[in-house]
Simulated scan of single mutants.
Amino acid sequence: MIVRTRWTVPHPPEVLWPALCDSRLELQPRCPVFYLGTPRPTMCRLPDGEGEVDAARQCVSEQGVVRQRITVWEPPARLAFHMESTDLGFHRYVDQLADLFELTPAGRGTRITRTTTVTVRGLRRAALYPALWVGLKSVHRFVFRNWQKMALSPPRPDAAVSPR
């Protein structure tokens, strides 16, 4: 299954690129799927420091962590990674999960395209795909709304750098 979401923000790719690997997602979700069990992301980070191909990336949610490996690192245009492991409940059903972010200049802003590819195992996979699609689409939009807010907000003087 492929889930693709596009979002346009009024900032250049260079301003948005850092959020792909170091951001805290602080907005409250608008979508009810988060209240029904979809893991709500709270931060993404590079636990080992700088980003590059084969570097680790983590997506942290209220329910656990998705550990990822970077497969494409082309700042400030493309970032791709795949899931290596997770302690989230969906690990029982998901064989593969990969993401590709593409940042394209669009006038005075940037068009962000996120493409998530998921492979589900088991006899009930046909029943799981619709729920996964809705959950992933909600996560995409939630993350993009947070990044848009971060890019529009001036940095707080008391803001600490997130741990790596």
Rank of each mutant, 00 (worst) to 15 (best):
F144D: 06
W7G: 00
R6D: 12
T119S: 10
L27P: 12
C21M: 13
G49C: 11
T117G: 08
H91Q: 04
G51K: 10
G107V: 11
R156G: 10
T42I: 15
P154L: 08
L136N: 03
H11A: 14
N146F: 07
Y93T: 11
A131Y: 09
V72W: 00
V134F: 15
E74Q: 14
Q63F: 05
R164T: 08
S153P: 04
D99Q: 09
V72I: 14
V161I: 12
L88P: 02
T5F: 06
A98W: 03
P130W: 11
W17I: 05
G109P: 07
I70Y: 05
P155F: 08
T8S: 13
G109R: 01
W73F: 10
S138T: 13
T42D: 04
P157Y: 07
R114Q: 15
I2R: 14
T117V: 10
I2H: 12
K149Q: 15
R69P: 07
G89Y: 04
T117S: 12
V60E: 13
E102T: 14
T42N: 07
R69Y: 07
P75I: 11
H11D: 05
E62T: 09
L136V: 13
R45H: 04
S85V: 02
R124H: 05
P155N: 10
P47F: 13
E62H: 11
R108C: 01
D99G: 13
V161F: 06
D48N: 14
G135T: 01
T38S: 06
L123S: 11
R92I: 02
D158E: 15
Q96E: 14
L152I: 00
A131K: 02
R57M: 11
C59Y: 00
R121W: 00
G135N: 07
R6F: 03
R111T: 14
I112R: 00
M83K: 12
P130N: 06
V120F: 00
R108P: 00
R108G: 07
R125S: 12
T104V: 15
E84W: 04
D87W: 07
A55D: 14
R108I: 03
L132C: 08
R114E: 10
R164M: 02
V33S: 03
R78N: 01
E14R: 06
A126K: 12
S138L: 09
P39H: 13
L16H: 01
G49R: 06
V72R: 15
S23Q: 06
I2C: 03
L132Y: 15
L100M: 10
S85E: 13
G51T: 09
